[in-house]
Amino acid sequence: MHVERIVFLASSAAWASRVRMEQAAILRLARILGLSARVLIVKVAPLPARPPEPAKRLVLSRAAAHHLRAAASSLADPELRARFLALAALAES
């Protein structure tokens, strides 16, 4: 197969240097494999960032729900009381 150049993508400059240091051996192995490459090109291309893992849903215990309901019953603010009760509703059944 006629291939003039081999391109390596390295994840860092350190890896690019290592590949360049082994250039002669890599080209020799390419010829053994039937490639007629004469040039080795090394480019630095950082690995793509991992996507963030989805947030784990925390589950409240029954005891926590009980305490939230108790706290809600002592609140005068209806909106705040409703929020405490909504949180208590998230507890494990």
Rank of each mutant, 00 (worst) to 15 (best):
Q23G: 04
A64G: 08
F84G: 02
A89S: 09
L9V: 10
E79R: 08
A82K: 05
R20N: 10
K56R: 13
V19C: 08
R38N: 08
A13F: 09
A86T: 10
A25R: 13
F84I: 05
F84W: 10
E92R: 11
D77A: 07
L29D: 15
L87E: 04
R20S: 05
L40E: 08
E53W: 06
F84P: 01
A16E: 09
L9Q: 12
P54Y: 06
L9D: 02
A45T: 11
A76E: 14
S12R: 13
H67W: 13
R20L: 09
A14H: 12
E53A: 15
A65F: 04
V42L: 00
S11V: 10
L29G: 11
R83P: 00
V3M: 11
L33H: 12
E53G: 08
F8P: 00
S61C: 04
R38S: 05
R31A: 12
V42W: 00
A10E: 01
L80Q: 13
S12V: 01
W15F: 08
E22N: 08
R18K: 06
I26N: 04
K43M: 04
L40V: 06
V44L: 01
S12P: 02
A45H: 09
W15L: 01
A30G: 04
A88G: 07
V7E: 10
M1I: 12
P54R: 13
R62K: 14
I26C: 03
V42R: 00
R5P: 02
Q23R: 05
E4N: 13
E4K: 08
A49R: 14
A64L: 06
L40A: 03
A55Q: 09
L35Q: 06
P46M: 02
V42G: 00
A65S: 15
A10C: 06
P54W: 03
L29F: 04
A86M: 10
D77T: 10
L68H: 00
L29M: 10
R62E: 10
I26R: 02
L90T: 08
A37N: 03
L58Q: 13
A91N: 02
I26Q: 01
L33N: 11
L47W: 11
G34Y: 02
I41N: 15
E79H: 07
A71C: 14
L90H: 09
I26S: 01
S12K: 13
A13Q: 14
A82L: 07
S61I: 06
R50W: 11
S73A: 15
R57E: 11
L33T: 07
A16G: 15
A24R: 11
A10N: 01
A10M: 01
A10P: 00
A89D: 14
L90V: 07
A30I: 05
R31W: 07
P46A: 03
M21Q: 09
G34K: 03
R69W: 05
P52I: 07
A88E: 05
A49D: 13
A88P: 03
A71F: 02
R20M: 12
A14P: 05
S93C: 07
K43L: 03
L40K: 00
A91K: 01
A37V: 04
A55V: 15
V44F: 04
A65G: 15
I6S: 03
S74I: 12
A49C: 12
A72Q: 02
E79K: 05
L80V: 15
A37G: 06
E53Y: 11
